[in-house]
Design a protein around this nucleic acid. Structure first.
Lengths: 234, 234
DNA sequence: CGGTACCCGTACATTTCTGTTCAAGTTAGC
DNA sequence: GCTAACTTGAACAGAAATGTACGGGTACCG
């Protein structure tokens, strides 16, 4: 076991070239700009890779290329190695997830904000999780932790906010509540994939369950419920 | 790179030979009984495989053998193929999980029963889940579904019981609540593995969270109750 | 319309894993 | 202590995946 953990093939991922903006550095040679079909193919590859990696983290590059409708060699023309492809997929997924998460208004009533966040992003968050899981095998741990935190932070902020507003419970650590939220979004997506859950129901079940889990368990007869401040700001 | 690859789709698993009881069926040839060290090795292999598969579903047979402290050829002497090994691991895991789950007294107060079940078995259930996940790639789907249901059923029974007793909520399908329970046990185990959660806290967090999620929340003043889902709960 | 960036199939080298065979050495158990 | 059961390393064949190289074809863009 100590001999050689097959993993560290010293994947270079320090700087993934940005595939959407060509170089065009006003140089002397002036290479023609990237062609339109090339950009289209890159998009198709990233889309296909995202879906394939979510289904099976060990999908072969050939399968991804086929799913994207391009040849395997074309794919290698855009991404030198498998690791580079996975990293590009991860970058795109995190951008998408982060953008959606950021669009949630934290100033809202925390319960409302939670519902909004979950409803608008449970699919995207799940997609991110799938890609992240796939990436865990071939990308360095510090990179994983980095992108991981960057998606979890908004969720943590929302929970922290709701807790300080007295709406969410205070007897469990925020990190655990974050885990609960992410885990349930993941589980819902998985159940939808397996046909055990209707996609239309998922968001509502998620919101209902998470609100119950995050709300202080007060319905004991005799215990006073924490009343929400009647500030209806909007 | 390292892909088990689903090439052998039709793995024979109809009858896995019982490795714990030798043949010795009063035959004519009278083969000597299985030796003690052989049985010990089989146990060690199953233990190691369980742990390895949980960490990485694609672990190589060689790594498992090394982890078990035996040679790779010895392993192949006991399990003809990788699929057979995985199946044996799965069988043992399900037996363990099922035994623990069955020891929970359903006649108790549902909340108490839930606490008892989660506390006594969240680790085992998680172990089962890990092995199941690994098995999903090389065992036929019907076998997966079989063992899957066999572990989920006791949980579903507990929830159903608590719901009929009026303790657990009635506005979410049982199947979803089962998903919630399994998912959170898994998440807790994962967090413990990653050092984000103390193992000593896990059970208590789980029980607290699940009870809150399963108990119908008191109606929040001003907000209309969520519509009951008209969907049958499978 | 012309150049060239791009696509793609074939083929090849390399690595890793599975599963088998062989020919020893070792140990449990009667 | 004898024997059969067991273990083991080396070595081999087959499959599959990753990258690379070559060379002809296609379609985009100026």
């Amino acid at each position: 076991m100590r001999e050689r953990s097959v993993r560290e093939r010293s994947v270079r991922v320090e700087s993934v070239p940005d595939h959407s903006t060509a170089a065009a550095s006003t140089g002397s040679a002036r290479p023609r700009a990237q062609r339109a079909d090339a950009r289209r193919n890159v998009e198709a590859i990233l889309d296909a890779a995202t879906q394939c990696l979510r289904r099976d983290a060990d999908v072969s590059v050939a399968d991804i290329a086929t799913a994207a409708g391009v040849g395997r060699i074309t794919l290698y023309g855009h991404f030198k190695t498998r690791a580079e492809l996975v990293d590009a997929v991860l970058v795109r997924a995190i951008e998408s997830a982060h953008a959606t998460l950021d669009s949630v208004d934290l100033a809202d009533d925390p319960a409302q904000a939670l519902a909004s966040l979950v409803t608008s992003s449970w699919r995207i968050v799940e997609q991110f999780r799938g890609v992240l899981h796939a990436a865990q095998r071939e990308l360095p741990p510090e990179r994983i932790r980095d992108v991981h935190d960057r998606v979890l932070d908004p969720v943590a902020a929302l929970i922290e906010h709701g807790r300080q507003a007295g709406v969410f419970r205070d007897d469990l650590p925020t990190s655990w509540l974050v885990t609960v939220a992410m885990s349930l979004m993941h589980a819902a997506a998985e159940d939808v994939d397996n046909g055990r859950l209707e996609a239309a129901d998922a968001a509502s079940y998620l919101v209902t369950t998470l609100l119950a889990a995050f709300t202080a368990p007060a319905p004991r007869p005799g215990s006073p419920r924490p009343e929400r401040s009647p500030r209806s700001s909007r």
